[in-house]
Amino acid sequence: KKKYVIKVYFEDTGKEVEIEAESKEEALEAAKRLAEELGLKIKKVEIYP
């Protein structure tokens, strides 16, 4: 089964997080949740198959 690796870059902090997920949708949801939890804004998202 294919996994996606999503790199999320946050504004202000210069922080980046990698998330593995089964689908792009799932990964983007996780990225949004994470940003909310951390109180950060997402600057850029890169998706690698």
Rank of each mutant, 00 (worst) to 15 (best):
Y9E: 07
K15N: 14
V45P: 00
A31E: 00
E36Q: 14
V17S: 06
K2N: 07
E37P: 01
L34D: 01
P49Y: 15
K15L: 07
A31S: 05
T13S: 13
E18N: 05
K7G: 01
K1H: 11
E37F: 15
A35Y: 02
E22W: 14
E37A: 15
K44C: 04
Y9V: 08
A27I: 04
R33Q: 03
I6S: 01
I47F: 08
Y9A: 03
E16T: 11
Y4F: 06
K2A: 11
I6P: 00
K24A: 13
K41C: 09
E18H: 08
K15M: 05
G39Y: 02
E37V: 14
G14P: 06
L38C: 04
V5T: 12
I42C: 02
K1C: 13
E25Q: 05
I47Y: 11
L40H: 04
R33A: 03
Y48I: 10
E37K: 15
V17Y: 09
G14I: 13
A30D: 05
E46A: 08
Y9K: 03
I42T: 01
R33D: 04
I19W: 12
K32W: 15
V8T: 01
Y4H: 02
T13G: 12
A27F: 02
T13V: 10
L38I: 09
K3G: 03
L38E: 03
L38V: 08
G39H: 08
E16F: 12
K44M: 08
G39Q: 10
K24N: 11
S23Q: 03
G39V: 03
P49F: 13
L34W: 13
E29R: 14
E18D: 11
A27C: 06
I19T: 03
K44G: 04
K7T: 04
P49K: 12
L28R: 06
K2D: 02
I6Y: 15
E18W: 08
G14W: 14
I47N: 03
Y48D: 05
E16P: 06
A27V: 10
I47A: 05
K41M: 09
E22F: 11
L28S: 05
Y4K: 01
L28F: 08
Y4I: 08
K3P: 12
I19G: 01
E26N: 08
A35P: 01
V8W: 04
Y4W: 09
K32H: 13
E26F: 15
R33E: 03
K43L: 09
I6T: 02
G14K: 10
E37L: 13
Y48V: 11
A21C: 04
V8F: 13
E22N: 10
K3T: 10
E29S: 13
K24G: 10
E26R: 10
E46D: 10
E37Q: 15
K15Q: 07
A21T: 09
T13I: 11
V17E: 08
E36A: 14
L40V: 04
L40C: 03
K2F: 13
E20D: 07
G39L: 04
V8Y: 06
L28K: 07
A21D: 02
E18Y: 04
K7C: 03
G14S: 14
K2H: 12
A31L: 06
A30N: 10
A27H: 01
V8P: 00
E11Y: 15
V17M: 08
E20F: 06
V17C: 06
K43T: 09
E26T: 08
V5R: 14
K15W: 06
L40D: 02
Y4V: 14
G14L: 07
Y48R: 09
Y48E: 04
E18I: 14
F10Y: 03
K7D: 01
K41D: 03
E25T: 07
A35G: 07
G39R: 11
I42P: 01
A35M: 03
E11F: 15
K41G: 04
V17A: 06
V8H: 00
E25W: 06
L40Q: 04
A27G: 14
A31H: 01
K24I: 13
L34Q: 03
A27P: 01
V17R: 08
I47D: 03
V45M: 12
E18R: 05
K24H: 11
A30K: 08
K15F: 10
I6R: 00
L34E: 02
K24P: 05
